[in-house]
Design a protein around this nucleic acid. Sequence first.
DNA 1: CCATTAGATTGATGATTGTCAATCTATATT
DNA 2: AATATAGATTGACAATCATCAATCTAATGG
Lengths: 123, 123
Amino acid sequence: MIVNGTKRSTTRSPAGGRGANELCCPPLTDAPMSAQESDELASILTALADPVRLRLLSIVAAEGETCSCNLEGPLGKSQPTISHHTRLLAEAGLIRGERRGKWTWWTLVPERLALVRRQLGGA
Amino acid sequence: MIVNGTKRSTTRSPAGGRGANELCCPPLTDAPMSAQESDELASILTALADPVRLRLLSIVAAEGETCSCNLEGPLGKSQPTISHHTRLLAEAGLIRGERRGKWTWWTLVPERLALVRRQLGGA
DNA sequence: CCATTAGATTGATGATTGTCAATCTATATT
DNA sequence: AATATAGATTGACAATCATCAATCTAATGG
């Protein structure tokens, strides 16, 4: 079922040639990153580098599963703006959306956050 | 000694009211973030969310200590551009610069990266 | 079938950002 | 003092981004 960030052109997984929970690359503190590695990580970090999206993400994580209508209020943003942010987060593979009836239910993709932590020099 | 990112107007530490290695906040996956928390984290993530800066950071981490002149070549960017990026990373508290003679020596601030990892849902 | 509701899409606008040429500052060397 | 070198600063420009009003799509309820 097609929803939000899932309308990407290619058939690639969330974003970048790997599954969200695959190992990928060593921490950036271990060895100089390649241009490709840095491009991929930067694209995920760009999705995270916004106050509204960080709070959105934390709400989704806290609620376990949330529809967009539960986000507009707490975040104080318009419906199109929320839709925009959920789309960016989904394209980055950080959340997943599932359409059920009128609502889209968003859930966290914890492995994706774990990948970021690891590449950021995770222990 | 005044160098690069250190020219900020206030007397605050690296960026945000805390020292780089202080505890601050629980992971974003534990509870909804406040607007202030998300602003602070987003500002660090914004500094990280660029391919050139990620590679710059990984080179500094690998070398242990590097002058700007060792960055222009590997990163393929002009001198002002490198200076711009080191400044942003320093303002975010992710690297520290020390002027010695003609050179500025950059070092990683690992606690700052650790803080980001923890807030990103670190174990 | 019509009205309502959730949310995605489009288009426009103001703000931010990455980049570099040109310039400036400070240090080192002769 | 004159020259050279490392790097910071300024100014400009194109590209990207966050935001929202307006519109469109799809599903629900009468």
